[in-house]
Design a protein around this nucleic acid. Sequence first.
RNA 1: GGGAGCGUAGCUCAAUUGGCAGAGCAACCGGCUUUUAACCGGUAGGUUGCGGGAUCGUUGCCCGCUGCUCCCA
Length: 497
Amino acid sequence: MSEDDDNKLIAQRREKLTALREKGQAYPNDFRPADIARDLLDEHENRAKEYFESTEIPVSIAGRMLGKRVMGKASFAHVQDGSGKIQIFLQQGAVGDESYDEFKHLDVGDIIGVKGKLFQTNKGELTIKASSFRLLTKSLRPLPEKFHGLTDTEQRYRQRYVDLIINNEAREVFKTRVAIVKYIREFFNSRSYLEVETPMMQVIPGGATARPFVTHHNALDMDLFLRIAPELYLKRLVVGGFDRVFEINRNFRNEGLSTRHNPEFTMLEFYQAYADYNDFMNLTEELLREIAENVIGSTSIKSADGETTYDFSKPFARMTMAESIAQFNADIYADDLNNLEALRSIAERKGAKVQDNWGVGKLQTEVFEATVEHRLLDPTFITAYPAEVSPLARRNDKDPHVTDRFEFFVGGREIANGFSELNDSEDQAARFREQVAHLDAGDDEAMHYDADYVRALEFGLPPTAGEGIGIDRLVMMFTGAPSIRDVILFPHMRPEA
RNA sequence: GGGAGCGUAGCUCAAUUGGCAGAGCAACCGGCUUUUAACCGGUAGGUUGCGGGAUCGUUGCCCGCUGCUCCCA
């Protein structure tokens, strides 16, 4: 945007600011509110009107003035602070002629401090009857209209500060996000997990299959990659003896933008020694049900379009990938899922991607993603992912072609991915070599060979379960947000103009 | 990367077949001492996203660019 986009409205307010400067300090910082709106409302909202006539409750508050209503010699407005908003009432006789005249010339959006006492209006609203007020910060830019608010999605994302000032729902979504993250942190802390931080800049981008961002370290004159996952570092910590660790932090993936993809997003990953993927399905179920009950306040979660609800109260469904394909595709025979030729024609028929060098496991996964994933509405665990698409997961004892892995779905979207960790260093080395072959064949999402990680495994990773949960998608699900941009404060946008 | 739609006053939106670009809110002036989308009267506010083209004439038609939204890969 240009530096000079002033219009007449802004020019008028600049004139008011100039007048303020001439009178003294235009940006004072010596007002200290003793109260916040939410506490005043919680404590006094339900009192009888008469209570305030016999009991004087002196209060002071500071915040942004919204909804100014001047009616001759008396005025109402609301003051919004970080906790909420409360109404103020000014009478010319109470604040004085000069001060009242100043109030009449305040603009909606100005930040003020108010002192007074509580009372209840005839309409029953708890209100501060002002004895005095002060302009603390002049607002130069007009806010969006009070009734419709700011609806333009582009401006809501680019100027999130305006969105937060004016749209209560936006504020609530982000407060819910904070509450969910806080709940998760306490959930793991109370189970003796250590919260750790691992590198954002990695020499070898590992732990997931995705294209990384590249950056450059000048002093070392070498390229570094922004991490696509913390997984391999967290498991190194389990090798080091931290039996239970978790990290909530940013990942970066160099992919397209969509309603479900932001180039940087927040991931929860957690690892526990002497546990397996079944233990983690149980733990996940416990965590999500508790978030629904304690943060959202309901185990039936509304979909983004409001037309469906997802039930978190009953046990989450669990089935293998092969079972789920059979369940949603009456025309696919179970035996064909293990026959490369048959599977290839099924995949083509179902509109899934097919490449010549793909094996049974990859093709099964493509068919699953094309025909099953979007239909998994109520909370569902899908297990037994093919080893071919799970290079870091432990093979199943009975069927080495699949792994002890699950993904978790709600509303047709993947929320979590967990598995018993592959702690056989020789198998891991072989799987890395397989990935490198894909990499050499031109698959720029395939994994690199991480020799230090294999070395760590050679020291001995105890039997361990691990899992990642995408926090942004989790918050979308719990808040019914249609786009990931609604749950990220400052989502990535192309530059303006 | 491909397709469709959108971009008009600070905000929310109009503008008939291509014929003077308008309303509500916000702002400014005036009135009003319990309003809450306050109310009443008046005033002012525009490079119609950017650039080109066709036309006597464009917000509207054509081309290019740009940002956003949705769908697809």
